[in-house]
Computed example of a mutant assay.
Amino acid sequence: MSRRRFLSWSAAGVGVGLGLNACGSSPSATSSDSSGTTGSQEFAGQQLRVFIYSGSTEKFFRDSFVPAFQAKTGATVIPDPGWWDSIPKLKASPPGQPAFDLVLTDATQGYPAIREGLFQTIDMDRIPNKEKFTPSVLDNWVYREGYGITFPGSGMVLAYNDDLIDFTPTDWGDLMRDEVTGKLGMYNSFYMSLYTFACMKVAWEGRPGTAAREMTDNLSEVLEFAKVQRDRVQYWWPTSTDMVLNLDRSNSAIGNMHSNGMITAMRESPKLKSIVPKEDIAFVQTMWVIPADTPQKALAEEAIDFLLSEEMQRAAAENGAPTPILSVAQEVAARDEAWTQVYPATAEEIQKIQYYPYDAYFQDWDSIVATWDRQVLRKG
């Protein structure tokens, strides 16, 4: 896979660790909702300002969501793409004039922002499409307290170059094998890789499936394990593009990776493969939340419900995102083998969707960051 060929698709997939990560096809801009009924146009003339992630999420939003939702409601959608700037912009907004009416964020920013009062509760009766989601993705305090609709972003997969290892990986314990010492590629962000170390630790100790509990009960031990085992890592990758290029060029043999970053890579280069170990599954927790003082609350709720519809979930899944709707997952899996390799597509698999252990991280966030930066990424 040439660098030019790889970068041609990765440019559309920037930010695969966050959000919907979908691009390409767009549904026809009709005035029908997911159940086939005609939109009421009750929001005609209104505007909805939406913060979304740049890159693939922005493309999905502009190509698929905006035309369909505008036709359905009569409202005008104004996407505002960015990365980590939604919260600062909201804090800088005048009272009653928030920068956005609807915000896509993740747990690392969303949790503290909700606790600071930046977002309001949602009228869940106005979000009937939430009933189509598997309950596991909504089983968290953000949803239970009514602040947002949570859903899975990218998942953690074990990626490898099949030409560089003489075994077929089956679980995270394989990263502890002597023959791959010094050949690992791991994400430089701790929210993923510290959890990967926890998965390695419990597998090595004969307790696979307990990584999340290990993070909660024995965080200091996981950090110490990461410090000791850091020399197994050859490359701390900053983006999915970098990891795929390193795997393809044989600079790294195996490691962790974002699921949606591997789908196209596996199609382009047969030697690049990935698995999702059955134990200790983890996804990025993304969420739709509504700013506290927006005057467009009802319109924002309408938008969330439409984003949860089968129509929008199908458009996202067909272009590389997971979906917590079983029927949509089965439909996409039936015609996309690469998608099936990295995302749950059966009732049993979807029920096992779980997020990274964010609550454990927030117990001692500053200490984790200091240890990770000074003693894991760097040999302190």
Rank of each mutant, 00 (worst) to 15 (best):
T196R: 08
D174F: 04
S189M: 07
E179C: 03
M192Y: 09
G182L: 09
G182T: 09
M176L: 11
K201M: 15
L223P: 07
D178R: 09
D174Q: 07
M186I: 05
L219T: 11
F190A: 14
V202P: 00
T216Q: 13
G182E: 11
N218V: 00
E214V: 02
L184S: 02
G182A: 14
A211L: 02
N218H: 13
E221S: 08
V202W: 06
E214R: 08
L219H: 07
T210A: 13
D178G: 10
F190R: 12
L219K: 12
S193K: 02
R177I: 04
T216P: 00
A212M: 06
K201G: 04
S189A: 12
M176P: 00
L219S: 14
T216D: 14
W204G: 15
V180I: 08
A212E: 09
R207F: 05
S193P: 01
C199A: 14
Y187D: 10
E179V: 05
A203W: 00
P208L: 09
F197V: 05
C199F: 07
C199W: 01
K183N: 07
S220P: 00
F197C: 09
K201E: 13
M215T: 04
V222Q: 06
N218A: 11
L194V: 07
N218P: 06
Y195T: 10
G209W: 03
Y187M: 12
D217H: 06
G209S: 04
G185L: 08
V222F: 03
V180R: 04
P208S: 06
E224N: 15
D174C: 08
E221F: 00
L194Y: 03
G209C: 04
G182Y: 09
D178K: 13
M186G: 04
T181V: 11
M200K: 03
F190P: 11
F197A: 06
M176W: 03
A211C: 03
M215N: 07
G206Q: 07
E221C: 03
R207N: 12
E224W: 08
D174R: 03
S220K: 14
L175T: 05
S189F: 08
F190H: 15
M186N: 03
E179W: 02
R207H: 11
K183P: 00
Y187G: 07
G185V: 03
M186A: 13
E205K: 12
D217K: 07
Y191A: 13
A198S: 06
M200W: 06
G206N: 10
G185H: 02
L223R: 14
S189G: 13
D174V: 02
E205P: 01
T216V: 05
N188F: 10
E221T: 02
V202I: 12
G206A: 10
N188I: 07
P208V: 04
R213S: 14
S220L: 09
M176Q: 11
S189P: 00
G206T: 05
Y191G: 11
G182S: 12
F225P: 04
V222G: 02
S189V: 00
E214Q: 12
G209Y: 02
K183Q: 13
S189W: 03
D178H: 08
E205W: 02
S220M: 08
P208T: 01
M192A: 14
G209E: 11
A203R: 00
E179T: 11
A212Q: 06
V202S: 10
A211T: 01
E214N: 03
Y187K: 05
V202D: 12
A198L: 05
E221D: 13
S193C: 05
L219G: 13
E214I: 01
W204M: 15
L194D: 12
